[in-house]
Design a protein around this nucleic acid. Structure first.
Lengths: 207, 207
DNA sequence: TGGGTAATAGCACGACCGTTCGTTTTAGAA
DNA sequence: TTCTAAAACGAACGGTCGTGCTATTACCCA
């Protein structure tokens, strides 16, 4: 809602800008404090606003959480998914998706590593709209990997008997494990192991 | 400290029992609420105690968190690591470690899945004693898998050029991914995919 | 130039947080 | 039976949580 249907909106220096700026900060903070641990007060302090002024942008903490997830999704698409599509269709695009993921961890696009890995672990055993949204995003990401794998198979880059869903599961497993290792221990060994594993798994499935 | 060095016991019906009972509940709850989200009040309610009565067992929240980690570690060793050692040394023991891990997720030994996966994601981007303890436990687990892989290689069950550390990384990756998937979506597909991946990866490395 | 209104701030609320303290209960030692 | 000390409790603390309500600012448009 609140879509910019009319060309000129809101009163003064466009509060939508402010809102997006808040959400950018929220997405960063959530990977460290968690979506639940991220408090209005701390977020207000981080953005230099008052609690109530910030709160008025959302109306409830849950709406803030959901909007933060949307923002994190946009960032993820920008720095991981979209760039992968600059690679040639087929196995190279599948590989690019994995490598871009590892890069976005390496470059610390989020201070606490992959937003969705972090938040999925936090919300996994809970219930409600936030959990459901996270679960759906995670399914979408796996589905993207699987679609890329299927495409690669159709193009003859992978063996015809390749199980695309299984391959997607395993590729996601190693890159997420690298994320966890990087965040927890601060060294890049896991990232290199993941690159190795991706390469090995892809060449294993190649015809 | 407070080791039972002298024969004389504590005051009355041994409060150590109570303490362990509290910690069992804490370990369960922490996989759902998180180690930070787990509050003294909620834990007191779950154990049927008063806040202050429970608090007296630990003295600070951090000590409670560290004690909870110790308890979770004991449980993990009991239901995953130790049982794996009933399998014959070598590749079968390595496989057993992975399968026992998947079983303990499947049987919901903890309501929120693997304790350490859950807590590692939460504390990964933080600092302090709790983070350090979690990081060390995670390294110990990977080291165990690597030691089992090395042993399997020495016994000729795996090819001589097998990279044990890389194999341990990849095996851990798929079983942890299965845990995440099971907790987040509640279905067993990921567990089956992980069993498949473990089998495939082991036979791939077998001579 | 003077409303109209979106954006923000100030303030206060009830609830819960971790923590402390003094008191009561209770089991075993004397 | 009395004494002692561990174990648990109840109440309260300062602080922060999410959340409202009211006022004030600052821009856009007429």
């Amino acid at each position: 809602m609140s879509e910019t249907s009319s060309p000129r909106r809101h009163g003064r220096a466009d509060g939508q800008r402010r809102r997006e700026q808040i959400l950018q900060t929220a997405a960063q903070l959530a990977t460290v404090e968690g979506l639940e641990g991220l408090s209005i007060g701390r977020l207000a302090e981080a953005t230099g606003m008052s609690k109530s002024g910030l709160y008025a942008h959302f109306g409830s903490k849950q709406e803030l959480q959901l909007a933060t997830i949307d923002t994190a999704r946009d960032i993820f698409i920008d720095v991981v998914a979209q760039p992968a599509f600059t690679a040639p269709a087929g196995i190279e695009r599948l590989r690019a998706a994995c490598l871009r993921f590892l890069d976005h961890v390496d470059q610390q696009v989020f201070p606490g590593g992959c937003f969705f890995s972090s938040v999925a672990a936090e919300m996994g055993a809970r219930s409600g709209d936030v959990h459901d949204r996270i679960a759906r995003e995670q399914l979408d990401w796996i589905a993207l990997l699987e679609a890329l794998a299927t495409d690669a198979r159709h193009r003859g880059h992978l063996r015809a008997d390749t199980d695309a869903a299984q391959l997607a599961f395993e590729l996601n497993a190693v890159i997420v494990a690298a994320n966890t290792s990087f965040v927890l221990h601060g060294d890049r060994n896991g990232l290199e192991r993941a690159r190795q594993a991706v390469e090995h798994r892809l060449s294993d499935a190649a015809s």
